[in-house]
């Protein structure tokens, strides 16, 4: 059947890209609202768990970098690494709630930003076992960090854990599927640029951690 649509070029072949861009726009537009709501408003444990990975750059950036990297690698990596990471985040969160201290400082999260960001920037390939181990270790770091917020009074831990898991899972799923699907040169370049930004941020904040006291 011949398409007789007279829609402008934007709505032709790239029809999937438009809703994605629109969704991204809505998220950016709404971002200040949850940020403000986070201070005093009690939103329940599920939502506070869900918001936690999104509102803290310390945890958002490593998640984003891992998702971009898994998508770049493609193949079995594109589901193994995110699943391993998600599982490790959940284990780390549970450990944190049970007050098992894994001695995770903020430096280790910043290191994961730098390492994962650099891997994205250079489209680095590692042996499968090493990649999986890294995803597990960085996931544990991140999971534990979710329970560090002193203001968060977690009354129903299961809901909080479910919130963290669904939020991380959604980020990973959306980013990975898009990076796997869109193989256009400029998309892959954009992915590398974002990885480079994450690595640069990681490098700067690592130096701040170990630098002179300010």
């Amino acid at each position: 059947m011949i398409r007789t649509s007279t829609a402008p070029p934007c709505f032709g072949r790239s029809s999937r890209a438009i809703p994605a861009a629109f969704a991204a726009g809505v998220v950016i537009w709404l971002h200040p609202a949850p940020a403000l709501a986070h201070g005093s408003l009690a939103v329940g444990d599920f939502y506070s768990g869900m918001l936690h990975p999104l509102l803290h750059f310390e945890t958002l950036l490593p998640t984003l970098a891992l998702a971009l990297w898994s998508g770049q690698l493609g193949g079995p990596h594109s589901w193994r690494l995110p699943l391993a990471f998600l599982g490790a985040v959940l284990v780390g969160t549970v450990a944190g709630i049970l007050e098992v201290d894994l001695y995770v400082g903020s430096a280790s999260l910043r290191l994961s930003m730098l390492v994962l960001g650099l891997l994205v920037a250079v489209q680095g390939k590692l042996p499968a076992a090493l990649a999986l181990t890294m995803a597990l270790i960085f996931g544990l770091f991140e999971g534990q960090t979710h329970t560090y917020d002193p203001e968060a009074k977690i009354e129903r831990p299961l809901l909080f854990i479910a919130g963290v898991g669904s939020s991380i899972g959604l980020i990973l799923f959306h980013i990975v599927t898009r990076v796997v699907r869109y193989r256009a040169f400029w998309v892959q370049t954009a992915v590398r640029v974002v990885g480079s930004w994450i690595a640069a941020t990681g490098l700067l904040v690592l130096a701040l951690k170990w630098g002179v006291d300010k």
Partner: peptide
């Protein structure tokens, strides 16, 4: 056109580290 945007932030961050460490 694509190498510079990928590589540039790293170099600048290295300069930033030098600035932070004084």
């Amino acid at each position: 056109i694509w190498v510079l945007p990928v590589a540039f932030p790293q170099v600048m961050a290295l300069g930033g580290v030098a600035g932070i460490l004084g």
